[in-house]
Amino acid sequence: MSDRVPVLKIGDILLVSIQVDLEDQMVLDLQDDLSQQIVATGARGVVIDISALEIVDSFVGRMLATTAAISRVLGAETVVVGMRPAVAMTLVELGLSLGGVRTALNLELGLGYLRRAQDTPPARR
């Protein structure tokens, strides 16, 4: 049995803080937990914090995109926060762009973005 990534509720936003390198089973569990929590709490936004991750490869990149897509289907917008400079540079070198995923510098800015997005329902995007 592998570890699970905790999903924390703050107001109508869910916070997922990824602290360890992810394995396949953990990703599946996380997507399971998260989708259930979004439905259960009626959350309007999801923040995924990856500030502890030193390595983001195509696997994690795809996981972030899929998770964002799942949340969007359930009516919650996803923001990925806290990406490290080295990680961003590696992703660019690899040619990955995390298309379709909102990013913010840190948790505070990410929360701010989600609040604004909720206040103005017809988002620009």
Partner: peptide, 12 residues
């Protein structure tokens, strides 16, 4: 472009 994409990826 690379530089801009990297900065965007971090949310700037």
């Amino acid at each position: 472009l690379k530089t801009v994409v990297a900065a965007r990826m971090m949310g700037a």
